[in-house]
């Protein structure tokens, strides 16, 4: 792959740059280190162009050849779709999460927005280097010589439950991970607070972004003693069933990737909850492959 310029979204940390730009509570918090994926890219000779709140715009304008993003909620994917870009969400554990601001840690994964699949996979090849600094790295993929990859369509198992399951787990995990942003350290705090509890409450009430406030509130609720069994535990059970059902579905369709309906709005929940890789291609083409078979997506993309 030729040398290219690449940018990162706000959740990827780069030494000397603000952490989560745009979020008031992290204002003034400068990252002391650079994300593993960014290091790998620059070491491979690609030029880092900086952080952006609009990674897809940056790629569309040609300013950057690729954008590294953390898109657990599917917002960037949909944006890429609208702009006619390609978005690759690798298998969970393929790219080191070191330097990625954790939200839903069980699904957080660096993805790539690019103009074509070839470029996205070229970037993935670089950033998927194994890292002992992330205890959730996937096992090393075995080399294989699958020449023909088919495409199948199927009903998504547990489909109607997926959005709720995803939201519950997203909120629970994000609530835990953003509780480090408490006003006491890493950035800003509320003024004129009276005592420790007031400092926590007002800093988080005034300075945490709305998305994280909602996740914190909902996460606290679904994890609370009274609601744990009804929400969190149940969501975990459905996730387990879904995870296994996805494996069965792929097992029943040998050497094939799944094509999701263009109208399907919850593709991100499939990848997040089952940890499988997915590829969005221009024209509403959404493909998902078995876990760690990311390369199948590249092969399948050539059919379109």
């Amino acid at each position: 792959m030729d040398a290219l310029k690449f940018c990162t979204d706000k959740l990827i940390m780069v030494k000397g740059m603000p952490v989560c730009p745009g979020v008031a509570i992290t204002e003034g918090f400068v990252s002391p280190y650079t994300a593993a994926a960014v290091c790998l890219m620059t070491e491979a000779g690609h030029e880092y162009a900086g952080q952006t709140l609009d990674p897809c715009g940056s790629v569309l304008s040609g300013e950057c050849g690729a954008a590294l993003c953390c898109d657990v909620r599917g917002i960037i994917r949909n944006e890429a779709d609208k702009k006619g870009l390609v978005y690759l969400q690798p298998s969970y554990g393929t790219v080191s999460r070191r330097g990625l601001v954790a939200q839903m840690a069980s699904a957080d994964q660096t993805g790539v927005a690019a103009k074509d699949a070839q470029t996205a996979f070229g970037v993935l090849k670089i950033i998927s280097t194994r890292d002992d600094g992330d205890g959730c790295m996937a096992p090393l993929a075995e080399a294989e010589s699958q020449s023909e990859i088919n495409i199948f369509e199927a009903e998504i198992p547990f489909e109607k439950f997926l959005p709720a399951v995803f939201e519950i787990l997203y909120c629970a995990e994000t609530a835990g991970n953003v509780s480090r942003f408490d006003g006491l350290k890493f950035g800003s705090r509320a003024n004129n607070t009276a005592g420790l509890n007031d400092l926590y409450a007002r800093s988080r009430g005034e300075l945490l972004c709305e998305e994280w406030q909602l996740a914190s509130a909902a996460g606290a609720l679904v994890l609370s003693k009274d609601f744990f069994d009804r929400f969190y535990r149940k969501a975990m059970c459905v996730r387990r069933l879904f995870f296994d059902a996805v494996d069965e579905m792929f097992a029943a369709n040998k050497n094939a990737v799944l094509r999701l309906p263009a109208a399907y709005k919850n593709a991100h929940t499939v990848t997040a909850l089952a940890g499988v890789p997915s590829l969005f291609l221009p024209g509403g083409i959404r493909l998902a492959a078995p876990r760690y078979k990311d390369e199948w997506l590249l092969k399948a993309s050539k059919k379109f």
């Binding site: 280190y33 002992d132 600094g133 205890g135 890493f186």
Partner: peptide
């Protein structure tokens, strides 16, 4: 280190 100081982006390694 950043991990035990609670900084973000530091996955635990058991």
């Amino acid at each position: 280190c950043p991990a035990c100081c609670g900084m973000p982006g530091m996955p635990p390694v058991l």
